[in-house]
Design a protein around this nucleic acid. Structure first.
Lengths: 193, 193
DNA sequence: TTTAAGCTTGAACAATCATTCAAGAAAATC
DNA sequence: GATTTTCTTGAATGATTGTTCAAGCTTAAA
């Protein structure tokens, strides 16, 4: 009877950052031991294997993101200002985040799609849940008669999600503040019109 | 004096498909020898190394894509029908293409961004050149007074490119014809309004 | 203080990785 | 037909991969 010495959340966040930076396949266990400070045995004991560590990191990412966005949304009273603030965060991450260190979900899904169905479906589910939380914000705006009920919240949220994924890939080709802001402005206008 | 036995274009297309399916880091040289039919020595003689083979595959991909899209665009007289046809092709690829086997450029850029600056910049340049060819089609539409001159062709093309990247990532989460068609319709309407 | 449970450590494992290279084979030149 | 040039072949390289495991250590219960 002895409790683990390491902080699981902390370890998962370190792994998360490492997976985001190098991608799943390029991240070696050696890299992960250095990043987390854990020895191989401890990692395999706590997370079973490399895939288990990724799944843990994905879960932690989702938790952190949900908390971040819920806080953000709670600070705004209209769908417009809430989503505008969200896009500001995303554009800012694209501009100021370390190169290659984008959203763990989209990055890993792009890499592993068609290779690992288990991880892919976990990632897809998490992204759909993100889309659903966008739909909720939009639905609130519709209820408040801030925007029209047609197209419905679901359809608007799908387009917004698509746009966010697109902005991130676009930023990989051109990291220019002016362009990314223009894209996000136009995206928001389209979604809320 | 003896000419190579293999067809370079053919080999590059095989490599291209393999890289698309597994991603750069998960594609081993062993896999590539099987896919191309070439022995290691021949690959290293013709392309220097694995990275060189990827660069060759990217070039081939770009060539094939340019030819495909130029043919497609030449069959249409309005920007609307040309871009609509393009989006049909892309949506069709998302729906009927093998899972994970999306655009080599965006997939590889997402995987290698921040890891390999040489490959990343080649990919970014190719994607920007794709965006420029979109701008050209749009500019033609403006000249023909099919669409208004403001926002300009460049800005519209940027938004369209972003949308295309977004649709592909979105398709990785949900491969549903109805949704993807709705997204592409809405994207086209936004770009041409 | 002894015992027992379980975490930590890090060396070792087989497998796979990208790459090399010397020998064999084929075509072009003489 | 001989020679030379270049391509092909595939075994071998050392490095790195993900994973295991037995020994050592720490803590909580007895």
């Amino acid at each position: 009877m002895r409790s683990a010495e390491f902080n699981k959340e902390h370890v998962l966040r370190q792994a998360m950052v490492t997976f985001m930076q190098y991608g799943y396949n390029k991240t070696s266990m050696q890299t992960l031991t250095k990043a987390t400070g854990l020895h191989p045995g401890s990692i395999y004991c706590a997370f079973k294997n490399k895939k288990g560590l990724l799944l843990g990191a994905i879960e932690q990412y989702q938790q952190d993101r949900n908390a971040q966005f819920e806080t953000l949304f709670s600070q705004h009273t209209t769908a417009h200002s809430a989503l505008s603030a969200l896009l500001d965060v995303i554009v800012d991450e694209c501009l100021n985040g370390e190169s290659g260190q984008v959203c763990l979900l989209t990055k890993t899904l792009t890499e592993l799609e068609g290779q690992n169905d288990e991880i892919s479906s976990v990632l897809a589910n998490n992204l759909i849940s993100f889309e659903n939380s966008l739909a909720k914000v939009i639905q609130d705006g519709i209820k408040r008669q801030e925007i029209s009920a047609k197209p419905d919240a679901k359809e608007r949220a799908q387009f917004l999600a698509m746009g966010i994924y697109g902005i991130r890939t676009y930023a990989a080709t051109r990291r220019q503040a002016e362009i990314l802001r223009q894209l996000s402005d136009r995206l928001l206008a389209t979604v809320l019109t």
